[in-house]
């Protein structure tokens, strides 16, 4: 008990010291808040016009497709049924087709004018029996879709660089060696770094989330508590990943390279800016190996589709796995 209290006292001291360092570094602190807000507003302005006059059809399977999908101005992509209907309810696609040699099943969104046009065209051009299904759901603006991406991206940079780069800087400057000469343990030091950065990440994300929502009023239909849970688990997963990268690295330049090697694929493949629905399967498989993908898929499910805990449980489980592996590797390999 006494030793646990002692440990908590040391962790608290390192936690406070790290927070002071961060808060007094006004340039970094300000940038962490200002940068994502600027991006959200820039995108809101750039993509604020009416949606493009282009029909999109999502097909479940690729065989015996109707003539409709070959019409000029119709773009088609393939997805599984769950994904396709999810896209339809968000009006990210106008029509969903599931085709066999004998019949055509199709779904439209009752709120979509484009869907109604495509439905009429399908009825005129298709000879096979048609089976109709309908979903509802309002169209999602790009800004609604991209906000979770930007918040996640900001969290990723803040978590990975704020811990990974800082720990390497401490090591290179000899500060870690100084701490090694005290009774502070690896676990206490690393835990304090994780908690300090988690506080910073969650606070910054909350401020950006609330601030931009007041002005842009983007879609948020799900539970705030679940969103906080996702941010918590996502933040932890990426902070521990940053620690694992920094646990033995001695050079800031090398740390730069490693951090870029981790952040760049997430930036491209985790769905920050655009959906990977139409991309090859192998790309989507790689994306599932990245923590940011799970953060964003879970966050969008909550924010846009009112998903519950069970709907995002798998994503949370993957993030917990990342945390355990990241912290385990850090504790095992950490060098002062």
């Amino acid at each position: 008990m006494k030793s646990a209290i002692r440990s908590l006292r040391r962790m608290k001291a390192v936690f406070i010291a790290r927070n002071l360092e961060y808060l007094r570094d006004r340039a970094s602190f300000g940038w962490n808040l200002v940068f994502p807000v600027l991006i959200v507003f820039a995108l809101a302005v750039v993509f604020s016009g009416p949606p493009k006059a282009l029909f999109t059809v999502t097909t479940i399977g690729q065989e015996a497709l109707p003539e409709l999908v070959k019409f000029p101005g119709v773009q088609s992509l393939e997805a599984d049924r769950t994904k396709a209907l999810e896209r339809l309810s968000r009006q990210q696609t106008d029509l969903v087709l599931e085709v066999s040699e004998q019949s055509v099943n199709y779904w439209v969104n009752g709120n979509s004018a484009a869907g109604a046009i495509l439905e009429t065209l399908l009825q005129y051009t298709e000879d096979r029996p048609l089976e109709r299904g309908e979903t509802d759901g309002q169209a999602i603006r790009y800004v609604d879709w991209v906000v979770p991406g930007i918040l996640g991206m900001n969290m990723m940079y803040s978590a990975l660089w704020g811990v990974g780069y800082v720990v390497v800087r401490y090591r290179q400057s000899g500060y870690l060696r100084r701490l090694k000469a005290t009774p502070l343990t690896k676990f206490e030091f690393l835990s304090a770094q994780v908690l300090s950065r988690l506080l910073v990440t969650l606070t910054a994300s909350s401020i950006v989330f609330i601030g931009t929502n007041l002005i842009l009023d983007y879609k948020m239909v799900g539970s705030i508590a679940l969103l906080v849970l996702i941010a918590l688990m996502g933040g932890l997963a990426m902070i521990t990943l940053g620690l694992a990268i920094a646990c033995r690295t001695e050079s800031k330049e090398f740390a730069d390279g490693l951090l870029n090697a981790v952040t760049f694929p997430m930036l491209l493949l985790s769905g920050v800016w655009f959906s990977l629905d139409g991309s090859p399967q192998w790309v989507q498989t790689i994306a599932q190996l990245l923590p940011l993908t799970h953060v964003l898929e879970a966050a969008r499910a909550v924010m846009l589709d009112n998903a519950g805990l069970t709907d995002i449980a798998l994503h949370l489980a993957v993030l917990v796995g990342f945390c355990i592996v990241g912290m385990g590797v850090s504790l095992k390999l950490f060098k002062w």
Binding site: R6, R18, R24, Y175, T182
Partner: peptide, 24 residues
Amino acid sequence: FQATALQDYLTPFDNLKLFSSFYD
């Protein structure tokens, strides 16, 4: 130590407080 960096932005007071807390 011959060459020891301390945490950026911390004052001597902050550092004394931090290092004091490591000991009983």
